[in-house]
């Protein structure tokens, strides 16, 4: 008994330690964001320092932080909204009116998520160039929609399949049309699933960096590209870099904390039960 408890206690400590190590780089980034440039590169590293909001203020007011933040919001929220609009009817159709082809169709949709972006970047780039869509944030949002559509459809489909058909039938008996059935019965029931699909889609779009680097420039680039511009400002502006990075990752990290359970479901497509 006492031995069992001792082992548990040690394991607990080990778990805290592991969590601390994993989180440390993020903690250090946040800390540096509140330092002055001098303190940021001080050796030995300073755990105690004069807290300043200077770097954050500067990062926010410097150049076009607002523009890039807005681009991140447009591309992440815009693509998520569009993905939901497309995915809800599709998932509804597949979950409630499956045919012989439904399963193959769903697997095909999931398979598009497994296509590496480099496999399609060149033609997409050329098409964007010809359409004059390069450096256009809405065009980037369209690509993010395509990128996240399989995840969103899958998440909703998995949830819709669990909805008792009796509920839908009851509405039907009351003479509801299909749009009514969808909007008034199914959607209110599905708020948790829609929220988790949306969270996942926002997180993935917000952090996406391959498409944004290749398809956007000064006007449409989201924070991922803007933060990458610090890669050459080595050594000199760590506090500012940290402040800019902190604000770039914080909103989505909080969402990630909220969506950790749905993450497994959404990204494994039910391969893990």
């Amino acid at each position: 008994m006492s031995q069992g408890q001792r082992i548990r206690w040690e394991l607990t400590l080990l778990a805290y330690l592991a969590a601390g190590i994993m989180f440390f780089p993020i903690f250090w980034l946040f800390l540096t964001g509140f330092k002055s440039e001098g303190d940021a590169i001080a050796i030995p590293p300073k755990l105690v320092f004069t807290l300043t909001l200077e770097s954050i203020q500067e990062a926010l007011t410097r150049s076009d932080y607002g523009l890039h933040f807005l681009n991140s919001i447009i591309s992440a929220l815009g693509s998520t909204a569009l993905a939901l609009i497309l995915a809800i009817p599709a998932a509804y159709s597949m979950a409630f009116y499956p045919t012989q082809r439904t399963q193959g169709l769903l697997l095909w949709m999931i398979s598009t998520k497994m296509m590496p972006p480099v496999g399609v970047i060149i033609p997409v780039y050329l098409i964007f160039r010809d359409l004059r869509w390069l450096d256009n944030v809405w065009a980037l949002a369209l690509i993010y929609t395509v990128m996240n559509l399989p995840v969103v459809i899958w998440t909703l489909y998995a949830f819709f399949r669990e909805v008792p058909h009796e509920i839908m039938e009851a509405a039907r008996v009351d003479g509801a049309s299909i749009p009514q059935e969808l909007l008034r019965v199914l959607l209110p029931l599905s708020v948790p699933a829609i929220a988790s699909a949306a969270l996942l889609s926002i997180i993935l779009a917000w952090n996406e960096t391959f498409w944004s680097l290749n398809l956007t420039a000064a006007q449409a680039s989201p924070l991922s590209v803007y933060v990458a511009s610090f890669k050459t400002a080595e050594g000199l502006f760590w506090a500012k870099m940290s402040a800019a990075s902190m604000i770039a990752i914080l909103p989505v990290m909080v969402m990630g904390w909220l969506a950790q359970r749905q993450l497994v479901r959404g990204l494994t497509f039910g391969a893990i039960k």
Binding site: I26, I41, A228, F230, K231
Partner: peptide, 30 residues
């Protein structure tokens, strides 16, 4: 709480994690 902290790196955008490691952790001087 501990689990939440431990999974946080997954939500850091790749560019930021590269900057943290390259500069603040692996920089040969600072």
């Amino acid at each position: 709480l501990a689990r939440t902290l431990a999974i946080s790196p997954f939500f850091v955008m790749p560019v930021v994690s590269a900057l943290i490691w390259k500069n603040m952790l692996m920089h040969p001087v600072y």
